[in-house]
C-alpha cells in the first residue's frame, strides 16, 4: 500500500502540472521566464522572514509571508517595467534584493535555518495536509482566473499595443499575470523548492512549445511533461534515495533536450 506521504506527493504532482500548464506556458509565451526565477527567490526571503517572526515575535505562516513577498516583488517589477525599465534589469535588481534579504533573515535564524533552507530545495514526499490544501486553493484560484481572462491575457501578450488600442487595459492583465506567477511560485515552493521551481514551472512549458507548437498544444503538453517528470521523480527517488524534485527537474530537462532536436 502506498504511504500517505507518497499519495500526497502524487496529488501534488498532478496539481503542479496544472500550474505548469497555465502559469508556466504563459510565462514562456510572455518571455518572462527569468521573472519566475526572481519571484522564487523573493518567496524564499518572505518564508525566511516568516520563520524568523514566528520564532522571535508572533506565529505567522511562512508560506503566507512568501506569498506577500512574491506579490510585492511581482508588483514592484511590474511598476519598474511600466516606468520603462528593462524587465531583465528590474528582475535582476529584485533578485539581488530578495536574496540579500533571504540571507539576512537566514543568518538571524541560526540553528533553525535548516527549516528555511528546506524551502530552497523542497521535498515532494514531505508535504503536510496543510501544504496540500494551500496547493489546491492556489490551483483553483489560478485556473478560475485563467478561465475568465484567458483570451484577454493572450491578446495582451501577443500584441500589447493593439490590445490596448482595442480597449483592453494591458497593464492590468500584465499585473494579473505577474500575480498569477507569484501565486504559482509559492504554491510550488514547499514541493520543489525555490531553486527547482524553475525546473517544473518553465522547462516543461518550454519543451512543450517546441514539441506542440500551438497555444492549446503547449498547455496540454506542459501538463503531460510535468506529470511525467514529477511522477518519474517520485518513482526513481524510491530506488535512488535522493530528493524527487531534483530527479523531476532532470527528467524535465532531458525532455527539453530531446525537444531541441525537433524541427520547428
Amino acid at each position: 500500500m502506498l504511504d500517505i506521504l507518497v499519495i500526497r506527493g502524487i496529488i501534488a504532482v498532478f496539481l503542479i502540472s496544472i500550474v505548469s500548464a497555465t502559469v508556466g506556458s504563459f510565462s514562456v509565451f510572455r518571455g518572462s521566464t527569468f521573472f519566475v526565477s526572481g519571484i522564487a527567490h523573493g518567496a524564499l526571503a518572505g518564508a525566511a522572514l516568516g520563520i524568523f517572526l514566528t520564532l522571535a515575535l508572533f506565529p505567522i505562516d511562512p508560506l503566507l509571508m512568501a506569498m506577500i513577498f512574491s506579490v510585492f516583488f511581482a508588483l514592484a517589477i511590474g511598476y519598474a517595467t511600466s516606468r520603462r525599465e528593462d524587465v531583465d534589469v528590474a528582475v535582476g535588481v529584485m533578485f539581488a534584493f530578495s536574496m540579500s534579504l533571504a540571507v539576512l533573515f537566514l543568518s538571524m535564524l541560526r540553528e533553525y535555518a535548516s527549516i528555511a533552507w528546506g524551502l530552497l530545495i523542497g521535498d515532494l514526499l514531505l508535504l503536510s495536509q496543510e501544504d496540500l490544501t494551500i496547493l489546491v486553493v492556489s490551483v483553483i484560484t489560478i485556473v478560475l482566473i485563467f478561465l475568465i481572462f484567458y483570451r484577454k491575457i493572450m491578446y495582451s501578450i501577443f500584441d500589447p499595443e493593439s490590445a490596448e488600442a482595442s480597449g483592453l487595459h494591458v497593464m492590468w492583465y500584465d499585473t494579473l499575470m505577474f500575480i498569477l506567477i507569484a501565486v504559482g511560485v509559492v504554491a510550488l515552493l514547499k514541493c520543489v523548492g525555490a531553486i527547482l521551481v524553475y525546473a517544473l514551472l518553465i522547462v516543461p512549458a518550454a519543451a512543450s512549445r517546441r514539441m506542440f507548437p500551438s497555444v492549446s498544444g503547449t498547455i496540454v503538453g506542459a501538463f503531460v511533461i510535468t506529470l511525467i517528470s514529477g511522477l518519474g521523480g517520485i518513482y526513481l527517488s524510491y530506488y535512488l534515495a535522493v530528493a524527487p524534485s531534483s530527479l523531476a527537474g532532470l527528467i524535465a530537462a532531458a525532455i527539453y533536450a530531446v525537444s531541441l532536436f525537433r524541427r520547428r
Partner: peptide, 16 residues
Amino acid sequence: SINTNMPLKVKEVVLL
C-alpha cells in the same frame, strides 16, 4: 511589436 513567442494560428490572430 508582435510577440511571436506565442504560437498562435492565423485564425486565432484574426479572431482576437
